[in-house]
């Protein structure tokens, strides 16, 4: 199934379009998305460790605007937001 990852904050550096499209197995979870993004970074940025740290310390947000756990099951064509560590104000 296809999933779009919307990029925010430091994760915007992962792609100029501010979006990554991933191909995932049915019943995939946020945990699988994390792995897939790291694979993508390995391929596109030669395993940039700083980028990988961002992914590992990020939360994820469902299309319904809830922060979701690593076990959250993704639906087909769902748009998921990556939420790197925050610091507004």
């Amino acid at each position: 199934m296809k999933v779009k990852i919307e990029l925010f904050g430091a994760a915007r550096d992962f792609n100029e379009q501010n979006l990554i499209e991933l191909d995932l197995e049915e019943k995939s979870t946020i945990k699988d998305i994390r792995k897939k993004i790291i694979q993508y970074l390995d391929e596109k940025f030669n395993g940039n460790e700083n980028y990988k740290k961002i992914v590992n310390s990020s939360a994820f947000c469902s299309e319904k605007n809830n922060i979701v756990s690593d076990n959250y099951k993704i639906t087909n064509n769902e748009k998921i937001g990556i939420i790197p560590p925050i610091g507004g104000g």
């Binding site: 904050g9 430091a10 550096d13 310390s57 990020s58 939360a59 809830n66 922060i67 979701v68 756990s69 959250y72 939420i83 790197p84 560590p85 925050i86 610091g87």
Partner: peptide, 13 residues
């Protein structure tokens, strides 16, 4: 540079 920040605090779903 993007500032490092802190992991978001949230209610568990």
């Amino acid at each position: 540079d993007w500032l490092k920040g802190n992991p978001i605090v949230h209610e568990k779903n």
